[in-house]
Design a protein around this nucleic acid. Structure first.
Lengths: 351, 351
DNA sequence: GAGTAGAGTGGGAGCGCTCCCAGAAGTGAT
DNA sequence: ATCACTTCTGGGAGCGCTCCCACTCTACTC
């Protein structure tokens, strides 16, 4: 049925000379405006015209030219996902891949494109804001931005909507989507308390990282809720690495040999702690229970498998897109936009 | 010094009214054509005009509008990275993240954009080729396409250059970048032979997967090179999952209790094998040496850590882009384009 | 001194859309 | 029948580039 229409002159550019809106209009016997209206779902179109256009679109296999559309409309129909290169380790964690999956899924419904941008040098970072704002994207999703990074503020200054995955600090001004780190940590520690653990230690992240302080806060809240005194000797600082987890565990064992539980602010640190515990001859979970955070694959592969706090990562990706689209659509750039999603404790053998 | 020039009327579209080529031309006191030539690095420009333009560009903070450029030039200045959704597990492996890093790095030098496209339904896959070809991208990078997937052929039919990461079958017609699976496997097995192992078993992937057959071929070549007879009882088929690795190992132990080494076609399967070996009371590497493939993080976290075959993943990403750009630039779409990169054996405690 | 190359340049003509403004056609009230 | 709406519609005027043609200069040749 698909009649190949060759009457219209084949344009210069474009691989394979795809049909244009004008050709669709001609075939449907309507004007360009009407076709445009149909394509963009305006309701100011008669049923008759609409069906004619839809047929022509189908017959011609018409797909709108994105560049032309972006140029004419002054919008980009694209969103950038920006990742600082040093963080690409993140990239290899399901955490990140889940976020991307969520982002992609949510975006698919809006037919905006997803641009992936890794920043690998300070120079690139400098140019980034200018590039991004040059009509190339409608908004920016920023993954794992550190406190003190000026990027979000630069984007804001250029009027480019942005969303962070996670707060940089308590009073985060830029729109963000975060998981309930405090609540998750609290649940983890309450779980430990519920299992009758008495001396519960914690391995935290660097004090200047907001996530770390939230998870520590959750630990404290759980203790307080159970009416327990907090023992500073049961708190050791790690750096979210396995080695850091080992050092912290070592320290804890020296300071409080009688501890019978550890809540680590990340699975990787928990894995390090497990090694030290084993080396010290402590059995897990019999003598010492261990709980991690993030529910990364590491958690499933340690021996014993780690009880951990799962974050709704895919949903976070989706939420980031929703928050971003909201910001793009709205004029009031000032309104605070953010979402905090609940976590879930996944109980495994370690505690 | 940057004088804000407000003489020119602020255009309707575009967030923040960024300067246009025309404004740069006016400021530099030249014509649009000359500015365009400077921007695009033509040598048909006098030194004087060039510096004038460069100054104006710097002063105005001019960044070309991608949409306009794409529209006028008929090219997209973008490349798509397409990932079938069921494969997003891949996504969480460093293998993939390294590829993306390589792709991104190589692309950064060409100022083409990277579009990330996950295919999550057959319907999306159908529409994909049409969408991609609608001037949206200049080429496509396809990750983990299975044998029998029509996508590469569809793209070829539309004249859209594509590159695969890995061959789908022996005589792969579509341009690809692959690692030397056969050579890597051979090196792994030769390593085992060199360590004096006598009964070397292998856990392969599904017979219909080309990677699997290559790695099996490497296993065989190593045996042959050492003048050893191949024992079919030492070959078990897995499916690249941990569970598959366990089953295969079980099978091997039952068939050939005397085996003293195992080469698994993936780290994940090797990890499964380790579990079974331990359960069976065999020590690794004393009684049985185990070698994996891929050098994924799993390899570092098993007990003992796995000897494995590392692939130059980041370089594969870079190579994919180079091959793709070559295909985009060339007219002769027929020419065969591919790269096969060498692997490297990483020796750890398991064998 | 006329003739011929270049090198360098300006700017018109699009690229394929969206926006928007007139105007046509239809509907109901007067 | 007239007027005032409302609903639909066509198509002009851009969006900011690249392409390319025509033109101006200068330099060199015979």
């Amino acid at each position: 049925m698909a009649v190949r229409d060759r009457r219209t002159p084949v344009a210069r550019g474009g691989r394979g000379g795809r049909p244009t809106l004008e050709q669709v209009a001609a075939r449907a016997g309507v004007g360009r405006g009407t076709v445009s209206r149909v394509i963009n779902g305006s309701d100011q179109v008669s049923e008759q015209a609409r069906t004619a256009v839809e047929r022509a679109v189908a017959e011609l296999g018409y797909v709108p030219n994105r560049a032309a559309r972006a140029l004419a409309a002054g919008s980009a129909d694209a969103v950038a996902l920006v990742i600082p290169e040093p963080e690409t380790r993140l990239f290899s964690e399901p955490y990140f891949s889940d976020i991307v999956r969520g982002v992609s899924a949510e975006l698919a419904e809006t037919d905006k494109q997803l641009l992936l941008t890794l920043i690998r040098s300070p120079r690139e970072r400098e140019r980034l804001a200018a590039y991004l704002s040059a009509d190339r994207v409608d908004g920016v999703l920023l993954v794992s931005v550190h406190e003190g990074d000026p990027l979000p503020e630069m984007l804001a200054a250029m009027g480019l909507p942005a969303v962070l995955n996670g707060r940089r600090a308590a009073g985060e001004a830029v729109p963000f989507v975060d998981s309930d780190n405090t609540g998750g940590a609290q649940a983890a520690v309450e779980h430990l308390i519920g299992r009758g653990r008495g001396a519960i230690a914690t391995i935290t992240g660097p004090a200047d990282m907001y996530v770390a302080s939230c998870r520590l806060a959750g630990y404290r809240q759980a203790l307080k809720a159970a009416d327990r005194e907090e023992d500073p000797g049961l708190v050791a600082v790690g750096d979210f690495t396995e080695e850091g987890g080992r050092r912290a565990m070592q320290e804890l064992l020296e300071r409080r040999p009688a501890l019978d539980a550890v809540f680590a602010a990340s699975d990787v640190m928990a894995a390090g702690a497990l090694q030290v515990l084993r080396a010290a001859g402590r059995t897990v979970p019999d003598e010492v229970a261990v709980v991690g955070f993030e529910d990364s694959p590491v958690a499933r592969h340690t021996d014993p498998p780690l009880t951990s706090v799962r974050q709704p990562t895919e949903e976070m990706g989706r939420a980031m897109v929703r928050v971003l689209l909201d910001g793009i659509a709205a004029k009031d750039a000032t309104r605070e936009r953010h979402v905090v999603l609940p976590t879930e404790l996944v109980v495994r053998a370690s505690g």
